[in-house]
Design a protein around this nucleic acid. Structure first.
Lengths: 165, 165
DNA sequence: ATTCTAGATGTTATATTATAACATAACATT
DNA sequence: AATGTTATGTTATAATATAACATCTAGAAT
């Protein structure tokens, strides 16, 4: 069963990001309700901060912003929230950047494939069956059983390439 | 031009690793000679420490070992050597582990695809044109121009799977 | 409604990973 | 030997992440 989803496409800088943010929070609430877990104020706030944009966000940048409204915040505050959000598929860690991005498709827990623009830092996410299938095929050749995968591709998005001309 | 190489296959735990180590050092010397750069004693020592095994090695573990023979060693000693070795394609960083593995194919600088066993930590490396090509194809669909890629797959190698029965 | 409890947060400390900045040494060319 | 370049030494600190234990609180069980 090999789904081929564009979880989060590149969007023009001009897109109405309020809608992305709002949708992500609604999806998160629905997911947590459905699963019977708590999207506490801290967790929701961290998720909102991550969704400020489509760029990966660093843990200590989240912390700085959290502190502005909640002075009791400390590194564990952020890392705990991040752990929760990652476990629930609401956030992915970009390993090559030590940074975190929101995921708009929490229901179905997965490890996506990420395309990250060097210029604007936008992260697009796929959950692509064809890629997974090819990796499976390669692994199978030497008897390797996959259980986790990280695919992070960097380069230049269409919009930024246009600007360079 | 799409090469399909197995840079570093899984090998049985029983393989004669001395040969891997020796070959890697010879290849490194040849490469540096050919390019006209210096594989200094520190750099060579770091490379040897990384090639102690096929497992990814952490920077501070390298540092601890370096110190045993060279007490002046400090973090920059290691990170500089690692930077040199990475630039020359002699070492890759595994981003998801913050650890480093040797590469036996320095001539042709590339970013490989890594398969990492959870049990024995062995890292196998491919430089696979088919994978690269598929990622290119996916990227092209939304006008993305790739210039760097990270593919790190975790799971269980054949040998370790056999042991679990 | 009260008690209980698991889960969430607060707090302090520290581990781990990596780089900045400047001083000195080694080496290669003239 | 004088010079410029590359490599190393040294000190300090930045950036990322976790351990350990105390306290609180929302919601379940009674």
């Amino acid at each position: 069963m090999s789904k081929n989803k564009v979880i989060s496409p590149f969007k023009p800088a001009s897109h109405k990001h309020q809608d992305c943010l709002r949708a992500a929070i609604v999806a998160a609430k629905n997911h947590c309700d459905a699963v019977g877990i708590r999207l506490t104020p801290i967790r929701q706030r961290v998720l909102e901060l991550i969704w400020q944009d489509h760029e990966p966000v660093k843990a200590y940048d989240i912390l700085d912003k959290l502190k502005q409204s909640k002075s009791s915040s400390a590194p564990p505050t952020v890392y705990r929230a991040l752990e929760f959000l990652q476990d629930e598929g609401l956030v992915h860690k970009i390993e090559s950047l030590n940074a975190y991005v929101g995921c708009s498709d929490p229901k179905n827990i997965h490890k996506g494939q990420f395309f990250i623009c060097h210029d604007c830092s936008f992260v697009a996410e796929l959950d692509d069956g064809e890629i997974r299938h090819l990796l499976q095929k390669k692994a199978k050749r030497f008897g390797f059983e996959i259980n986790d995968e990280m695919v992070e591709i960097k380069g230049y998005c269409q919009e930024c390439r246009g600007l360079k001309e």
